[in-house]
Write a protein that binds this DNA or RNA. Structure first.
Lengths: 341, 341
DNA sequence: AATTTTTCTGCAAACGCTTGCAGCGCAGAC
DNA sequence: GTCTGCGCTGCAAGCGTTTGCAGAAAAATT
């Protein structure tokens, strides 16, 4: 006898109390129907009385796998991530899976830790919805043999599906729309980030503007992600003396921050300057003025991810696929014809 | 020999490759300093080459506990919950703990499932920040012997700390402030919920109004939680023909929804009607007009919870304590003197 | 060189569960 | 009365770790 835990709240305790073996208890708790119903109720009663909760670690260990869907996101506060998460969670619960979430806060060391956690937990499937993916981590996940889906990481890998939104199209639509309204002097507000998706939006913005109105000199500003960051970027823009007639923002939160600062400066939206966002979060509809933005179908993305990780699209998943989603422009009140001056 | 897993990615594999025993590998991986450094590097190399990730289930099982902080919240989308979660997460990571979050979506069956999950995971500590707590669940948690803290569940229990905000004070401050501005006809916008904290705010609102301006006939409206719900409640208010000079909302999101609808109706804020919120989320500062609201120090709450669950306040926690936090009124642009009519 | 000490490593039990297999008791068939 | 079959239950191995203890190897002391 080595150690002896005082309160051994395990199958044995329940078994003893019910006068059966641990295997029987296990079978009852797992609803295997080979148990006589009288035994069954005795066991259930005992478990109840002891306030017994099966040890999921032991269970996963014995089964060799867990019934857990792992989700990693950059920033739960951002509705873009949150909505995908919410959908995934609903799908998982519908299949009786539990969900474990990890937030990376855009930090790559935290992403690494989260990936390790998920692999360590031997999750049944893994969805990684982050902006800060790195190639070697993809290899790590791929090597773990856990079915996984990534959001926007470039090329799909063996065992891994990649979903992405065609941001270029979204930006192009926005720029042509603004161009049609007569806007030439435009600015882009991004966030401090060299991450793929972000710099792609920035690049596409420049290209589009150059193509639509060759003479224009588009400018780029940036701040940290979020409401504050947008405000800060707008501050810099104003102080630079540059007076665009339209400002494209990398996401809706930043756009709301931008609008706030512009208003503070006495500028009217969209009379003096038009503003657009990206993502089409709920707030875009509720802020004032309501925000013209690019809609990204987050629920659809969530469902697709779930299907490819744990759903019925198994065969396709095995191969590793890429799925591209087209975004739509949603016009609201924050954009109008360009100011003449 | 029973089963034989083809790819046994376990300690043994690493041990074999490094030519040592599993115990040695374990010691290396856990940084126990009794291992000779040459052996140590051999082991690390082997682990690296095999892309080995320790099975956390097995580890927790062997250790009898996990290094995981469990967090249960009602609605991650609501910054009130999110900010507490964020703080808890930061504190946990600072101590090398991993975090597992569960979202109940205000549904009590989901809360039950989440509690089961956390107990099943044998988390090192549990923070439950939900509005929909039920008494028997508190007992369940208490019986599990997991150190826990609850937010606003009434009486503290053995092994469990209870934190709460003095909502009554927050409401009273708001009502007296509005009263001082000359407001008599007031409405309260809550959400459909018989949950403790919510109905407490409602009740306190009625009491305060009756005390401040005895003749007034305060009215109550409600919708689902969130931006949409606020809008919907405001719709009902407008259709009812009641024309308050001030509207208190149960939280900031609903307040923003309310303002949106009022604006749509052509009402100006605060000229025609004042609006207040509760929580002081970031958005309150960024919406237009910026929102007068009651600040709840969510970070502070997060830190306190962490301390009481896993921090150094162990002794106090053992006893089970209650901690009450005072909220502050933050005046911004959505409130002004009452319209004369 | 013999002994003691120290440093390092391996053995094997334990953690709480699942599950293949064997076995028990009992009903019905012969 | 023996046999067969079936429904139910128990035995025990195994899942991948940790860790107390003992033993081997190396270093220090005599």
């Amino acid at each position: 006898m080595r150690k002896r835990r005082s309160l051994a709240m395990n199958l044995d305790a329940v078994a003893q109390r019910a006068g059966v073996s641990t295997s029987t208890v296990s079978r009852v708790l797992n609803n295997l129907e080979i148990v006589k119903s009288s035994t069954r109720s005795r066991v259930l009663k005992a478990a109840e009385e002891l306030n017994y909760h099966p040890n999921l670690h032991a269970r996963s260990l014995a089964r060799g796998k867990s019934r857990i869907l792992g989700i990693i996101v950059s920033n739960m506060e951002n509705p873009f991530f949150f909505d995908i998460y919410r959908t995934l969670e609903a799908d998982a619960h519908a299949q009786g899976l539990e969900v474990v979430v990890a937030n990376t806060d855009y930090r790559s060391e935290q992403l690494l830790a989260s990936v390790q956690l998920m692999i360590g937990l031997r999750v049944a499937g893994l969805a990684v919805i982050v902006s800060e993916m790195e190639q070697h981590l993809i290899q790590t996940v791929s090597g773990s043999r856990i079915p996984a889906a990534f959001y926007d990481v470039g090329t799909p890998q063996k065992n891994i599906t990649n979903i992405r939104v065609d941001y270029r199209k979204g930006i192009k639509k926005t720029v042509s729309y603004l161009n049609a309204l007569g806007h030439k002097r435009m600015a882009f507000v991004g966030h401090h980030s060299t991450l793929g998706p972000i710099s792609e939006r920035r690049k596409t913005f420049l290209e589009s503007v150059h193509r639509c109105s060759p003479g224009a000199e588009p400018r780029i500003f940036a701040g940290p992600d979020g409401l504050d960051g947008g405000r800060q970027a707008a501050r810099e823009l104003l102080e630079s003396g540059f007076r665009p007639t339209a400002i494209l923002c990398v996401n809706d939160f930043m756009a709301v921050g931008v609008m706030r600062e512009l208003r503070e400066e006495g500028l009217q939206i969209p009379r003096d300057v038009s503003v657009t966002g990206f993502d089409n979060i709920k707030l875009a509809e509720f802020c004032s003025p309501s925000l013209t933005t690019v809609h990204i179908p987050r629920e659809q993305i969530g469902h697709i991810i779930f299907d490819h990780v744990l759903g019925n699209s198994r065969e396709e998943r095995e191969v590793g696929r890429e799925i591209v989603i087209d975004p739509e422009l949603v016009v609201r009140d924050s954009t109008g014809v360009a100011a003449k001056n």
